[in-house]
Structure formats: structure tokens, C-alpha cells
Write a protein that binds this DNA or RNA. Structure first.
Lengths: 158, 158
DNA sequence: CCATAATGTAACCATTGTAGTTACAATAAA
DNA sequence: TTTATTGTAACTACAATGGTTACATTATGG
């Protein structure tokens, strides 16, 4: 199967929108799905499909029609990666899924109950990590990385 | 797709083996893949396929031939869930996978670098949680759950 | 030494999630 | 009214998972 890159792509989209958003001016730049798809190297429909989920939870605003496009519906520092993660769906596609043992085996039945607790603990840790990071952090880190790279490129040229 | 339940099933297998292992006697009971598969409610081949990975990293011993079967190669309190997780493969099948953006878009390129760091942090948290739990803990919890359930069943009967 | 019971593993299939793509209706600006 | 955009359905290709059959290998035990 193709790897699940939805959180990565959604974060990419939001970060791009954040970068387009001037910190001082209240006006967000509106980007079209075509342009975003180009940066991600995918199809505009893939972007719109993902964005639909982000719109549904109030992270993104979209406007149809000529001159329309996408923009953030929140300040970047108000968007934790946990909010993005939750926007994509409740379930983590991961190896942390209980199985369904033989219901007549008491050991098996107890196993799943215990496993459920363990996996909940794992998920909880994941959520805490995601909660501590915002799109604003991502945008800042990307800016910094771009500067460093530009500098390295310039040094290489010289 | 079928959900990935490998960690759950592997933990199930190891816990069953741990339960069959008398704490006082040094002899492990040997169980055959057929019996284990029955508790998990799957095919013996699925069990053997998984066990092969556990054998490879020295968590389980297997003996072919009549009277053969599977047994723990370690003390249960020496087997953290992290070891089990690692035995199954290096990569976490999860939504925490970076994508591959347009390599000509400097923002995209920086994005993945930053995302990589974020996802490493998530993975790190997961590993810490898994490291804090052992098969011995699982076995103990399962025992306790079974007792509770038996008591509840008895109460229901009365 | 042969019958038996077990592992090891290859091969194949069905199911399902993901992403890519085409197509087109709906919408809104110029 | 033309044009540029979103929204969404439908289809495809691909890969991962787990179930299943089949069979070679191995070791016990009578």
C-alpha cells in the first residue's frame, strides 16, 4: 500500500498557508489548490480532498470561483499538530491495533483488554507530542531551514 | 486493508508463553503454533510467520519435530514491548510518514526536513512508552483480569 | 527405521487503504 | 458570459495484511 502521508501533507498545506500569511497584515493570501499541489508534487484533487477535512474542523477557509482559493481560518500559533491529526480522523493507522482473539479463550479475552490499555497509553503520548507543536513552529522552522540552505548554496557557489 | 495487528498478536504469543512458564521451575512449557493460533483465533502459519521474527532476535526458541514447539528464550521481565516492536521491523506503519515534495520547491524541501524531526520526536515518545512495559507486566495484568472476570462470572451465576 | 508431529517457508488470494487521475457540477469574480 | 476556482464522485493502480494450502525439513519415539 502507499504509505499514509496525510498528516505530512496536511501539515505542509497549512504551513504554506501560514507562510503566505503576513504576520502584520490581517489579510491572508489566498492560494489555489493547483499551486499547493505543485509544491507537494501531487494532484490538486488530492489537496482539495485533504483540505475538505481541514475546512470541516475550521482550520482552513476556502472560496470557490475565480480569484478564490484557500487560506487559514486560524492563527498559525493556534493550530497544534494534534488538531491537524484529529481533523484527519479518529483512528491511527498503526501497529497499535488490538486483534480479535478467540472469545472462548479467557486468556485471549483478557489479553485484548490489557492491550487496549497499553495502546491507549501509547496514543496518549503521541497526542501530547503533537499538541506541543504548532503550525507557527513549523513555519518558523521551515524559514530557518530555507535560510540555512540558501547560505549553504551560496557558499557552494563561491 | 486489514489493520496491522502484529504487535498485538506478537505480545499475545509471548504472554501466553510467559503464562505457561512456571516462575519457580526453570523448565518452560513448550506450546505448538496450533494451540497458540487457537487462542488468537487465526491460522498456525500466521503464528509461525510472526514467531520467526521473534526467534531471529532471540526472544523465542523453537524446536521442530514431534514434541517440539515454542518457548520463551528470555525471562518475561526482560522482554519490553519495545523489544517486541523492534523485532517486527524498523518502521512504524503509521500516519507519521513524510511525503516527497517537489524537489525544486525550497519550501517543500525544508518542510520534509522539519517534518522528519517532528516524526522522530513522536516515534521517540512511542518507544519510551513501550520500553516501560514488559511481557511480565502483561502476564500479570492478564492473570488479574482473568481472576476478576471469573469472580464476576461466579457472581452472575449466583 | 519408520510413522508421526511439529516447524519453516513459499506461493497464492481476498480485502482494504492510499493516492493518482479524469470528469464534471457548482460557484463566484471580472 | 467567460473564466478560474472549489467540491466531489468514480475509477484505477499499487501495496500491506492476513488467511490458506502445500510441502520440505526436522526430530521424537515406538
Amino acid at each position: 500500500m502507499a504509505a499514509n502521508t496525510q498528516l505530512a501533507v496536511a501539515t505542509h498545506i497549512l504551513t504554506i498557508l501560514a507562510l503566505g500569511q503576513g504576520d502584520e497584515s490581517p489579510k491572508n493570501v489566498r492560494l489555489c489548490s493547483e499551486a499547493i499541489a505543485h509544491s507537494i508534487d501531487t494532484n490538486p484533487v488530492v489537496v482539495r480532498r485533504l483540505v475538505a477535512k481541514l475546512v470541516k474542523v475550521g482550520l482552513v477557509e476556502s472560496q470557490a470561483g475565480k480569484g478564490g482559493g484557500l487560506s487559514l481560518a486560524c492563527k498559525p500559533d493556534q493550530i497544534s499538530l494534534l488538531r491537524v491529526y484529529e481533523a484527519l480522523g479518529d483512528e491511527m493507522a498503526s501497529p497499535f491495533k488490538p486483534h480479535t482473539p478467540n472469545q472462548n479463550c479467557p486468556t485471549g479475552v483478557s489479553m485484548v483488554r490489557v492491550l487496549h490499555g497499553v495502546f491507549a497509553e501509547v496514543e496518549d503520548g503521541v497526542r501530547k507530542t503533537l499538541e506541543s507543536l504548532t503550525i507557527a513552529d513549523m513555519a518558523q522552522a521551515v524559514q530557518r531551514a530555507k535560510c540555512l540552505e540558501a547560505a549553504a548554496g551560496a557558499a557552494e557557489q563561491a
